[in-house]
Each structure stands twice: as structure tokens, then as C-alpha cells.
Design a protein around this nucleic acid. Structure first.
Lengths: 134, 134
DNA sequence: TTTTAGATGCGAATTATAAGCAACTAAAGG
DNA sequence: CCTTTAGTTGCTTATAATTCGCATCTAAAA
């Protein structure tokens, strides 16, 4: 079915946006705009990179996908909008999801320690994900 | 005194690097390369932006300063290399330091929950830092 | 001193991303 | 259906951030 990618004020359906959303939702690789562009081209060969950027940003603004910036300085997108954190593997560069509810605990602790009221938090773990034998 | 900014293999002293390091260490604003450039120019008017980039990256590689990427997608530098986290204020855009030891606790919990061994982690809190009355 | 590898300033090249615009089209109204 | 309207697209051209190439300069060891 057509994911309701147009079910919002001042926004209509477009095939391009539909495919972009499908692609982002179908992967766990936390893709960049460029990767999404390459994938989408295989289905809609005449799509332009600008359209991919526009739609990714639009979907992120709507909260339908997430926009993430990792240490590589690049913007990544994530179809998983539930609370979760990330583990960046220093070996293979992969980004693993950490689907654990660590935020509320930390936010409380932060408040006790500093008085700051956080609305949320993001945790980025880093290390090697696989065994290290050479 | 001249901070030992050259006390490493294949690296010699340079006035430019010294000033850059001083400036990054003297602020808590988590500056971008451009800001550091503007500051350094006031002391060394003929310094070039390329030199600032080169030295910031070099110092970061040596672990003398930290390279951070926040949600604004920009690279920031931090003279504070001790374990600490950040609070991004959604009002004024300021980045506050959270000098608390939350990492080891989380890393342990991550290991228990998933078996992943993290070497470290970064927490980014976000919310409004000041009272919200209008 | 001389030597040498590291550092600098400058300008050109890359990358990632946004902006401008005429042509196209979804969807609401008649 | 046919019109109308405003959102969307592909294209091209900007920007902004960062890196590279290179001749020149200079710390610091010999």
C-alpha cells in the first residue's frame, strides 16, 4: 500500500517520496542521502539528487524518519523513529542499533546532578563489535 | 610557557599551532574551525584558514583536543579531553558541558544487555537550558 | 652553518547540500 | 471530465565547509 506520505497539511502524494520512504524504512544501514539516491535511481532512474535531499529533509521534519549526524560529519537517515541509540564499530564502520531505553534514566540523573531538564538524549557508543583476533 | 605542541614524533614547534591550541583551550564554546580562525587572526593576522584546519585536525589526531560533530552537522573542537558529555540548548543553541561520569555505567549496561563491548560513549542531551516563561 | 623534514600561506579543487526556476501533476471543486 | 491551484520535480547554479597541491619558509638536529 501507499504509505501515507502525503497525509499532512499542504502536502500531496508523490511517487518519488514514496520510494524514498520505502527505501529508508527497508534498511538498517543508516544511509546517507547519496546512498538513498543510488537506490532510488534503480526504481526511478530519472529521479534527481535534489529531490532525494528535499524529501529526506521533509520526511525528517515531519518526524516520519530521523536525521542523524555521526562522527563522520555526514548526515544519515533512519527509518526507525523509536527511542534507540547507536554503536559505531571502529573496525568496519558499521552503525548498529541499540534498542534500549537508556534515556529516561539518564535524563533523571542529569536533572539530579545539574538541574538541567533534558527533553531527550542520544547515546553513541563506540568500540569494536566483532571479536578482535587477527 | 610554550605548551608542548611539538613534543611528538615527526612534529616540530610552530607559533601558529601554539596559538590555535591556546585559543581552543581558553574557551568553553566548542568552537568551529572558522571561529578559531577569526580569533587566531587577531594575534597572527597573516595566518591562513588552511593552517587552522590542518592544526586543529592534527591536534585532534594526537588527542590533545577533541573533535566533535553535533546535530548542526558542523565540526566543533573542544580543549577539554576529559570524559564529559554535552547538553544542546534548543533555545539559544549553546552547548553546555556535562562533566559527569556516566559512561562506564552505560557501557556496563550495554554489555549486559547486548554483549557489545564499547570503548567509550558520548551522550548528547537536548532541551531548553533556561526557564521557559515567555 | 648546513641539512632536512615539517609547516605555512595561497589558491584551486572537492564534497555535501541548498536554492532558483520553469515545467509537470495530484487532488479538490464544479 | 475539465479547471484550477499549489505542491513537486529535474535541472542548473550557488554556497559553505573542508581539503589539496605546491613553492617557500623555518625549527631543530647534526
Amino acid at each position: 500500500m501507499k504509505s501515507k506520505n502525503h497525509d499532512r497539511a499542504g502536502q500531496r502524494y508523490s511517487r518519488q517520496r514514496e520510494e524514498i520512504l520505502n527505501i529508508v524504512r527497508a534498511t538498517k544501514t543508516h544511509p546517507t542521502a547519496d546512498w538513498v539516491y543510488e537506490q532510488t535511481r534503480q526504481i526511478l532512474p530519472s529521479i534527481s539528487l535534489g529531490t532525494v535531499y528535499r524529501n529526506l529533509n521533509l520526511l525528517a521534519e515531519e518526524g516520519i524518519i530521523q536525521r542523524l549526524v555521526f562522527e563522520d560529519g555526514k548526515v544519515h537517515f533512519d527509518g526507525n523513529v523509536h527511542e534507540h541509540h547507536h554503536f559505531l564499530c571502529e573496525d568496519n564502520g558499521k552503525i548498529l542499533d541499540v534498542e534500549k531505553q537508556y534515556s529516561s534514566q539518564l535524563i533523571e540523573q542529569l536533572f539530579k546532578d545539574t538541574g538541567l531538564k533534558a527533553r531527550g538524549c542520544k547515546i553513541e557508543f563506540y568500540g569494536v563489535s566483532e571479536s578482535e583476533e587477527t
